[in-house]
Design a protein around this nucleic acid. Structure first.
Lengths: 121, 121
DNA sequence: TCAATATCTCAACGATCATTGAAATAAAGG
DNA sequence: CCTTTATTTCAATGATCGTTGAGATATTGA
């Protein structure tokens, strides 16, 4: 369940590109239903070729997954790897210094309250 | 206090390189006292030239800061930007779906309990 | 089967990146 | 002032990245 360094490096690399970061955003918002490759490309203003390239990149990095539905290929965010990345970063940037990213952990939708609620169901 | 997309892109780019990721790790562990450039380079097995290049890169990305102390230049992790990045990623990857990164928020040193403790002092 | 739609693959190009080693700069101490 | 130590800067090189447009592949419906 722990994200390895290599995975994290790939994930950071994948997210270090504007088009891809926006794609991940769009896919997270889209939720489990995902979006067709074309729709993702359109959402971020990329050509079909470019969209395909970046979506493949994201998939190789494990941040998204795809399935075919008729003519379309539906991409969706991989929540597990995304949260794994957050966890990796927290572990890395906390490293025995909880005060470091405590403020981050208190963020918006993932505030302690929201976390407890989400965990308790 | 909110991390902009551009900053986040730079930060992800900075962390997508093995040497730099290890440098950040070493500097986070070192804490506020930081480490001399040479020590960082040695810790990650980089030549002095390479170390300088990567440390500058990290500094440009805002993830670390430097100060001169006698002959040495001391680098230290920038906790604010590091936690800002975690927060950005959480906001991005949660986007109205708290369950997404709730598991991440429950991580180790930043578990809800640790968070509350750190916030309450 | 044919045409239309959706996506991917490929090669080519310019741009950015990482590494190297040599030279420049800065500070300390004799 | 000269030497040593610590670090940065620079130019050159090869490697990787992102974009483009053309063409290949897969699916659907007439």
């Amino acid at each position: 369940m722990q994200m390895e360094e290599k995975q994290a490096l790939d994930a950071f690399g994948a997210l270090s590109q504007e088009t891809r970061l926006q794609m991940v955003r769009a896919l997270v918002i889209a939720g489990p239903d995902g979006m067709a490759a074309g729709a993702v490309g359109e959402a971020v203003g990329a050509s079909s070729s470019s969209a395909s390239f970046h979506l493949s990149h994201l998939e190789r990095a494990g941040l998204v997954q795809s399935r075919r539905a008729a003519r379309s290929i539906i991409y969706s965010a991989n929540h597990e790897s995304l949260s794994g990345l957050v966890a990796f970063l927290m572990r890395d940037c906390c490293q025995g210094h909880p005060e470091v990213c405590a403020p981050a952990a208190a963020t918006d939708c993932c505030s302690p309250v929201a976390v407890v609620e989400a965990i308790d169901g």
